[in-house]
Design a protein around this nucleic acid. Structure first.
Lengths: 232, 232
DNA sequence: CGAATAGTGTCTCTTAGACACTATGTC
DNA sequence: GACATAGTGTCTAAGAGACACTATTCG
């Protein structure tokens, strides 16, 4: 292996930030203010700095580009290193997946012309294309999120600190694109030890019988798993 | 973001190559022939070349260092980018996980003093430590393999082209470190459409009643999943 | 009151797991 | 024959899903 052939690449991080807004799955995008792909929507992200851990770079870039901070859940997704994925040269990007509750509107940072939440189905239905290979990255992140809802209690990170069972169900319905039976869902969630814990308080924000409020339980893995089967 | 602070890192790939030998889970290691960590066991891997896709680098390094080629299954695992993970400087490593059938002994390449299969439990039981952060990478790969056996048909890639149900069961037992009921396992596997397909041939290599031989089926995802619960 | 949402009871079907039993080879 | 491994039958318990029913609010 000749030393002069060894690659020194520019390292970037990109973020798939998912949330549930108005019952629909949404992701965070920034409109590029500089070339390449100027004016196109892209995932938030940017270059890793010298001496900076990858995860720290992801957190920093999110704040810089959108004014939001992650808090809830941030995990590494995958690394994208196709030699031609960036027209500027060899840029290898480590993608991170963040799942967050319904946050305020983002504020575009210096390199961005705009930043906002996009309803995922609407964005794709309109035929929009993200910059670089970000459509692929977004798809991979979405698939990771969908499958993690099955066997972990991660759905709770989409909710606020206190939430009703119905709100939690709407998370599953939005992420999986299915309709679940509210009664069976309620029993399943409340019977799984450690999934959610009652706070003792109630809310009537939905107009019917007041619902109990819950918070995240201690467990991370669900036994048995939630099933992605569609209901009525 | 000042341009002079942007990181240009050296990119590497490392491989966790797992197989089942003599009923035990084993991984492939090379003894380092050059500093740093000279003389220590490490995962096979090396630097990505200019213009080379990451996955191609993983395949190339495996052949160069051990004479083995992957064939069966190779997937990206995670990327390790701690600024101090390599004493030579900032080296970011993309780890790949390979699952292979029982292959011949590896042959050490030019940079390696030795290359061989290590029984995983014996290696750890003896208190050996891999170079760099490779213990962590190995653990992560192992955990990925363990969980993927649950919900995919990947266990079959540990077997040869034709295998008996008992051989497939031994894969699960070795990877999960449990004992499974042969009768229930047999029924479960053969009743899951597309998991394995009968070849019509039999073998008597284990001294009892001849067993039917099967090959991999078409499906990739198992419904319902295999459960990691220990049997008698 | 009706409408709406929260939550429980209960039935059926499928599957996991335990394990008795039968089948077919070698020695 | 004994022994070993392959494979089937059957029972029980638990969970998924369907859905009738009760509970508690608002207007």
């Amino acid at each position: 292996m000749a030393e002069d052939l060894v690659l020194t690449a520019t390292l970037a991080v990109d973020l798939i930030v998912l949330t549930v807004r108005n019952g629909a799955l949404a992701f965070l995008a920034v409109k590029r203010g500089v070339p390449p792909f100027r004016g196109r929507w892209a995932l938030p992200g940017g270059f890793v700095l010298d001496g900076e851990p990858l995860r720290a770079a992801a957190e920093r870039e999110l704040v810089e580009e959108t004014g939001l901070s992650v808090g809830a859940h941030l995990e590494q997704l995958a690394t994208y290193g196709d030699p031609r994925r960036d027209p500027r040269g060899r840029v290898v990007s480590v993608a991170y997946l963040a799942l967050v509750p319904d946050l305020p509107a983002p504020v575009a940072g210096t390199d961005a012309a705009d930043a906002r939440w996009h309803d995922l189905d609407a964005f794709r239905g309109a035929g929009h294309r993200l910059a670089f290979d970000h459509d692929q990255i977004l798809s991979d992140g979405l698939e990771r999120a969908r499958s993690k809802l099955e066997y972990t209690s991660l759905a709770t990170v989409f909710c606020g600190d206190e939430f009703t069972i119905a709100e939690l169900r709407q998370v599953y319905e939005a992420v999986w694109g299915v309709t679940l039976d509210p009664r069976n869902f309620h029993r399943k969630v409340t019977n799984t030890d450690g999934f959610v814990e009652p706070t003792g308080r109630t809310t009537a924000r939905d107009g019917g019988r007041p619902a109990q409020l819950f918070r995240r339980g201690a467990i991370e893995l669900l036994h048995p798993a939630m099933l992605r089967t569609a209901g009525a």
